[in-house]
Design a protein around this nucleic acid. Sequence first.
DNA 1: TTAATAGTACGAAAGAATTCGTAGAACAAA
DNA 2: TTTGTTCTACGAATTCTTTCGTACTATTAA
Lengths: 129, 129
Amino acid sequence: MNNKITKPTEAELQILQILWQNGPSTVRFVNEKLNEEKKTGYTTSLKTMQIMFEKKLVKRNEENKTHIYAAVVREEDVQKHLLDKFLDSAFKGSAMKLVMQALGNRKTSKKELDEIRALLDKIEKGGNK
Amino acid sequence: MNNKITKPTEAELQILQILWQNGPSTVRFVNEKLNEEKKTGYTTSLKTMQIMFEKKLVKRNEENKTHIYAAVVREEDVQKHLLDKFLDSAFKGSAMKLVMQALGNRKTSKKELDEIRALLDKIEKGGNK
DNA sequence: TTAATAGTACGAAAGAATTCGTAGAACAAA
DNA sequence: TTTGTTCTACGAATTCTTTCGTACTATTAA
């Protein structure tokens, strides 16, 4: 079990999102995706991905001249890790408060609400642990 | 209505937490609180609080030699703001996923679960908004 | 009144993250 | 071949944040 998740920086997280969403990708592809959000130079993306490679956040296939990058860390694991940190720093650890805030201030569909209810029931039954 | 919340840095957020929790405080007090968590030089705390003052995150009473600092921004407002950002960057905007993660991976009391149910009901009834 | 103590102000060093320019390798097309 | 294009590598500039040293002022105690 590999617990040592290094907290990705903001730029790294954005790239991970793209890799999670699209699967293994070239730097060019990632850079183009990034540019949909915010002007980003090609070598900037490249450099960031090289750093992520050193940090083992991603791996890459170097068989061809154009490398193919893929996420090494799993989306859920990173989310959990970031959530823990965030909970701590912004909500002093109160998951309750965070959930109330998250639900309270935005529109959530009936379907989603029901899904949450189902989860609550499951937790209460002790299915969670 | 003042929407222009500048995202506080990590160090600034820690100080805000102390001010929210303890009310108006001196630099010395804040610094001592910070030191319960992590060794922090006095002038480091001072400098950070001065920057926060410039940024209008805090105000201060300068009547006496020892200034008294107080938060200007409200805890809920900052939390909401940080949550929005976090949701976006880590969960691509899906409050659902975040809530599931937050509830799924930790122990939550019956009372809390019921509070959430109540909130869900309220949202569904359209009472929310 | 003088010395020690406790403050503020502030520039600048140190660190961390991001951005960018340039060099050189690989490859394709002419 | 030669030329243009598309890559990687990588150092260095930039920017943002945090930390710290130093100068100076007010206050307190001897």
